[in-house]
Amino acid sequence: MFEQAYLFSILPKLFSAAWVNLQIALLIAAISIVMAMLVTIVRTAKIGVVNGAFNFVASFVRGTPLLVQIFLCYYVLPSFGIDLEPLTAGVLAISLNSTVFLSETMRGGLQTIDPGQIEASLALGLRRSVIWHRVLLPQLLIRILPLLVNELTIIIKGTALLSVITVVEVMRTAQQLAAASFRPFESLLGAGLVFLVLNVFFILLASVLETRLQKRAT
């Protein structure tokens, strides 16, 4: 029998566990955005070796499952003397993934920027760093804002995979509750609800941002 009362009784626990997912996700998002900006700027310098290396890493990251990357960071890095906590290993794996994705997004965003702006900035005698900092990055971030928010939902979903390397977040909490109560279905359904609440907010935010930006553009 489906136990509604049980489902309701575990929701508070699951929601407090969601705080862990959210914090991890925001941390990963912050790391990824900063890293992606750096990588993007470096890529525009068009240094063959560097870009080649990036393309190689990007191809690897896009060609293998996140779950396997998480295992790589957790189980394999120790063989290279890098022993990471489960949480750190997870943050590293997901950040790598998001950095690659966001850097590609930013490349797409850059192509929408009018080249005339660069000429104008150069004509004004602005230094390269100033052009990036004051002209390009602010526009870029605004243009890709909906995609950034969208990426945040992907990161949040990714944090559920950290349960497999024993990080106690929503999924892991649900599994623990399931083991204690023998009610796995209700427990997992509860976990699903928590993610739904968390992500619906961001998905709606992304679509609002997108329509706003489209309006501004026209």
Binding site: T153, V164, L188, L189, G192
Partner: peptide
């Protein structure tokens, strides 16, 4: 799109 696949999988698995 909101729910991680691992959770959907387990919901279906137990559901």
């Amino acid at each position: 799109r909101s729910i991680p696949f691992i959770i959907v999988l387990f919901i279906v698995y137990y559901g």
